[in-house]
Amino acid sequence: MLSLTTNMRVRLRNDSSAREFSKQLLKIGDGKMASDQNGFITLPYNFSIIVSSKEEPIDRVFPNIAQNYNNHDWLRERAILTPKNVNVNEINFHIQEKLPGNSETYKSIDTAMNDEAPVNYPVEFLNYLEPPGMPPHNLNLKPEQQQQQQQQQQQMQ
């Protein structure tokens, strides 16, 4: 098992408020934050920002995404962390909608390697599963505009 001990973003940016936030996160993770008799901890007032919509953190973390999505250095400095993959997929969908171009859907292969092997689970159930590290059954991607233009030119020829 690996654990995170150094917040590299704080270290690289030398941001005092981010450094304090990092220390608070480490205290929580190490179990050093004071708790009440029920085991609940009280977070400091300035620990987080409450947002009114799902779009707000996207707009704060990825401002002008439509203009900056090709800038890998800009993207590398940004991340939204969520506790569940369902939230990640939803946020990724909203970010993808802000990008230029048309979305293409790619489906996973849902056939058995051995046709004679007994199938214990319906295909619909297997397509519904999203184990960590595996793409979803319906993967929506937006090819870069240059690739789309090249494909359109090839189709016209």
Rank of each mutant, 00 (worst) to 15 (best):
Q153F: 13
N46C: 09
E104W: 10
E77P: 01
T105Y: 04
S16K: 09
T82C: 12
S108Q: 11
E116V: 06
Q157L: 15
S53V: 06
R19V: 02
I91P: 02
K54F: 12
I50E: 15
K32G: 03
R9N: 11
Q145K: 11
S22L: 08
N46F: 09
K32N: 02
G39N: 01
R9C: 02
Y128I: 07
A66Q: 11
Q147W: 13
D73H: 11
S35P: 00
N87E: 06
S53C: 04
P63D: 09
A34Q: 05
K98I: 02
V119Y: 02
M8C: 05
A79W: 04
E77T: 05
Y128V: 05
Q148P: 00
N14A: 12
L129G: 11
P83R: 03
R76F: 09
N71E: 07
E20V: 07
R9A: 13
L141F: 11
Q37G: 01
G101I: 07
R76Q: 10
N38Q: 14
A79P: 03
E56D: 05
Q37S: 05
F47E: 10
P131L: 06
E90R: 07
L99K: 03
I80Y: 00
T82E: 06
R76K: 14
I80F: 03
Q149I: 13
L129K: 13
V123C: 13
E104N: 07
D115P: 03
V10D: 12
K32M: 07
S108P: 03
E20Q: 05
D115S: 09
F62K: 00
E20K: 09
I91N: 02
G39Y: 00
D59G: 00
T5L: 13
